[in-house]
Simulated scan of single mutants.
Amino acid sequence: MKVEKKFSRIKENVWRLEENGNEYSVKRYADVRDAIKIRNLHELLQTVDFPYCAPISEKGNEHIVVQPWVTDGFPVDFSKQSDRRASLKTLEALHETETVVKWESLPFLKPYALLDKWNWRLERFRNNRQTIVSYLGENVVDQLELYSEQALACLRTAPAREVPTTLLHGDVVHHNLLKTAEGTVTLIDFDLACTGHPDVEIALWLHRVLPKADYNAALLFDEEPRLQVLGQQAIAMLQYPNEMLREWSYLTTLPEERRVLLAQQLIPFTEQALNRWPELCRFSNNLLEHNRYLP
């Protein structure tokens, strides 16, 4: 029987494969170690019956990983409370696998170096200051640098809750969290998976969610009991303008024509964020002060 295959390119190294009525995600890794990492990770998650990710197919080879396509899944919409809740539930379930898998002991997973990464992100932003100033102006760029410095200073002294290190997905952008018709959220693309404190990933999730909730942190903390137990380190993370630094630095890598198009989106995004940032910092500082006296 003839096997009919149809490939559709999704990204430079990702294809969608249709084969005899079935659909698959096909991803090629230049470094075989990355493919091994993904296979090992998924095998372990399957061993512990983690339900929120797709299994690995045997169809691949040493450089290619094949998984069933999540046909009924769509990227979560962080502006919806139901999607926020479902995605947070999935991340919590991922972090809870630490009780049966000692992720920190596995050699193919690296620890998440938060301060190193965010220091580098600020340095990169500064290295591209002249280009970014041409779009935002000196005062706005000064504000972003000041907020970044203050947040990093706070992070250096803010303690984390005493809980075990666990597996972090590492890239909780909305299109890596697919909500199915049943209302559950499936995680895809574990390329940046690492080990670290679970609160760090929840804070990174908040960074993605806050712009879709008009930076109303009080609303988010009221609606989700999980957020009430965040430690001081994660609360301090809220003050770092991570999304803005990343996107403006990315803009500087583009050709001029694409820079102009992206700037048309980033300028109002940045203005909205900075209008809300003082309130967000006050909320974070109040939580830090309150949590300082908790047992």
Rank of each mutant, 00 (worst) to 15 (best):
39 R>G: 07
168 L>T: 03
114 L>K: 00
70 V>I: 15
120 W>R: 15
85 R>N: 06
31 D>L: 09
81 Q>V: 10
190 F>Q: 02
107 P>D: 10
248 W>A: 07
213 A>C: 13
193 A>T: 02
291 N>K: 15
127 N>T: 08
91 L>T: 08
120 W>H: 15
243 E>A: 14
283 F>T: 00
38 I>E: 14
287 L>P: 01
56 I>S: 03
153 A>R: 12
272 Q>M: 12
211 P>M: 07
73 G>H: 01
234 A>R: 06
142 D>H: 10
229 V>E: 08
281 C>I: 13
259 R>I: 05
240 Y>L: 14
2 K>W: 11
290 H>F: 13
99 T>F: 10
266 L>A: 07
230 L>V: 03
34 D>M: 11
34 D>G: 11
22 N>E: 15
229 V>F: 03
236 A>D: 02
104 E>G: 11
215 Y>E: 07
202 I>Y: 13
238 L>A: 08
127 N>R: 14
142 D>V: 09
174 H>F: 11
276 R>N: 09
90 T>R: 09
124 R>L: 14
41 L>Y: 04
64 I>A: 05
208 R>K: 12
132 I>N: 01
46 Q>W: 08
5 K>T: 15
80 K>V: 00
44 L>E: 02
78 F>V: 05
96 E>P: 01
115 L>M: 11
74 F>Y: 10
190 F>L: 05
25 S>L: 14
150 Q>C: 05
36 I>E: 15
283 F>M: 01
105 S>H: 06
69 W>C: 07
203 A>W: 00
119 N>L: 12
245 L>C: 10
15 W>E: 06
177 L>F: 06
287 L>N: 08
170 G>F: 01
102 K>T: 08
199 D>N: 11
209 V>A: 15
161 R>M: 06
249 S>A: 10
9 R>E: 11
160 A>F: 08
198 P>Y: 05
52 Y>C: 03
243 E>M: 09
25 S>I: 12
286 N>K: 12
86 A>F: 06
149 E>S: 10
152 L>G: 00
257 E>N: 11
256 E>H: 05
176 N>E: 04
24 Y>R: 03
254 L>H: 02
59 K>L: 15
98 E>C: 12
270 T>M: 03
207 H>Y: 11
291 N>A: 01
45 L>T: 03
206 L>M: 13
262 L>V: 13
94 L>R: 11
68 P>F: 11
44 L>Q: 04
220 L>F: 06
106 L>V: 08
108 F>K: 06
267 I>M: 12
245 L>Q: 07
274 L>V: 11
84 R>L: 09
141 V>L: 03
177 L>M: 14
202 I>S: 04
125 F>G: 04
149 E>I: 12
293 Y>L: 10
162 E>W: 00
167 L>D: 00
216 N>K: 09
36 I>F: 13
230 L>W: 06
285 N>G: 00
17 L>F: 04
148 S>E: 12
197 H>D: 01
166 T>A: 02
99 T>Q: 15
32 V>S: 15
180 T>V: 04
135 Y>A: 09
228 Q>G: 05
171 D>A: 12
5 K>S: 09
193 A>Q: 01
219 L>F: 09
190 F>G: 05
22 N>W: 06
14 V>S: 08
8 S>L: 11
142 D>E: 15
43 E>Q: 14
184 T>Q: 13
194 C>W: 00
153 A>W: 03
162 E>D: 15
67 Q>F: 03
